[in-house]
Computed example of a mutant assay.
Amino acid sequence: MTEALSRYDRVLGCLVGGAVGDALGYQVEFDAWRFIEEEFGPGGVTEMRYNRVSDDTQMTLFTVEGLLLAQPGGEVESVREAYLRWLETQREPMPPLASEGLAAQPWLYARRAPGNACISGLAHGARPGVNPNSKGCGTVMRSAPFGLRFSPAEAYRLAEECSMLTHGHPTAGSSAGAFAMITAHLMNGEAPQKAVSETMLHLRRTLDRSETADALQQAYALAGTVPPGPNTCAPLGEGWVAEEALAIAVYCLLGTDEVRDGLVASVSHGGDSDSTGAILGNLYGAAYGHAALPREWASQVEGREVITALAGLLAEA
């Protein structure tokens, strides 16, 4: 068991940590490792030169809002409606008159390379069955809040169902569900190794989850042999698809409890650096609490006041 922390500490740490990892990685998203090394040096992305978050944090916050507004049993529909509100922030330059909640926040109207499947799936009504061949990581990076609110099994179920609002591939659902389940185990005070192991056992129950289970198995093995560092996650892929993004974050989580070093490793690679950083930041925050995050990054990340307010509401719910 990890050190006893309050529920609020873990919730705040998870949401702020995700934003921190997102902002770190967004600085180099789409860049190959050789260009990152030229720009930041061989140590990787060790500076937050810009505090901007991407669609990863935006959608995570709308997931929180959807869960806060949901009636028992109506979580999927409430999250769907929240994602449709997020979609409008990607279409309009500023909040319309009489906007409420997150839709009234001007900073959330910035378009920061949103995922194609997220946009198209929502534009087509956000109903199960859309984009049947898509397994991009857009389902994973927004799913930590399910683990902050529900038991591990329920968090898995809801994250998997909500992934189908934009991505129809089974691996997109199982990866989102696995991420939410690991987060829920961490919220319960379980050590990262146990949280991941329990989730892997859950995944192995059916064959349609095998891609996610295999990716986590690779992450587990790599963490035991190669300490996380700049570009050491390359054997796991680049993070554009769901199981790879989750595997990279889990590799860093299991490989080191030094939060700064892990975050640097999670974004210092060619590929979807903001998503892998955001997922790891969520996991670190749920595991070790807000105080474990590097203070200079956590204090300046974009949207911190709104994130803090949502964390308070979610922790009380």
Rank of each mutant, 00 (worst) to 15 (best):
G239V: 10
R7T: 13
P170S: 05
V28K: 03
R34P: 04
L102R: 11
V53K: 01
E81S: 10
R209H: 14
T276R: 06
S266H: 13
E38L: 10
P227E: 13
V64L: 02
E75P: 04
L263D: 07
V64S: 01
P294F: 03
S134R: 12
D9W: 01
L61V: 11
F150R: 15
A159H: 05
C233H: 02
A126C: 07
V250D: 00
A184M: 10
L61F: 06
S275G: 04
A245P: 05
E154M: 12
A287N: 05
F35R: 15
L236S: 02
P93D: 10
Y26F: 12
M94H: 15
G271R: 01
S268T: 14
L68W: 04
T57P: 05
T2W: 00
P128S: 04
P42D: 00
R85K: 15
Q90N: 13
S275F: 04
V53G: 00
R149H: 05
E88D: 07
A32E: 12
A98F: 08
S299I: 02
G239Q: 07
W86M: 12
R205T: 13
S143F: 03
Q217K: 13
A291K: 10
R80Y: 08
E47I: 10
G239H: 05
A234W: 07
L68T: 11
A195S: 14
C162Y: 00
M164C: 06
T63D: 05
S6N: 07
D208G: 02
L148K: 09
Y8K: 02
R260V: 06
G13H: 08
S143I: 04
G44F: 01
M187N: 10
R49G: 03
W240Q: 02
S273G: 07
P93Q: 11
L108D: 06
R111T: 14
L207N: 08
L15H: 04
A110R: 15
F62K: 12
T199A: 09
E65A: 15
T166R: 08
T232P: 01
P128H: 03
P227S: 13
V16L: 14
F35C: 05
E81V: 08
G125M: 11
Y284S: 08
L122V: 12
G66R: 13
S210P: 00
S275K: 08
R260T: 11
D272M: 11
A113L: 11
L222P: 01
D55R: 05
V76H: 09
F179Q: 09
E39S: 10
P114W: 07
M164D: 02
E243V: 04
T2N: 08
P294T: 10
M59V: 06
W107I: 11
D22L: 03
V259C: 00
A234K: 14
S175D: 11
G44W: 02
A245N: 06
H269Q: 11
H202R: 15
I182R: 03
E305D: 12
D55C: 05
R10W: 01
T171S: 13
V267M: 07
A223F: 06
L201F: 08
F35Q: 13
A159P: 04
V301G: 01
Q300I: 08
M200T: 13
H124T: 14
D208I: 13
P106E: 08
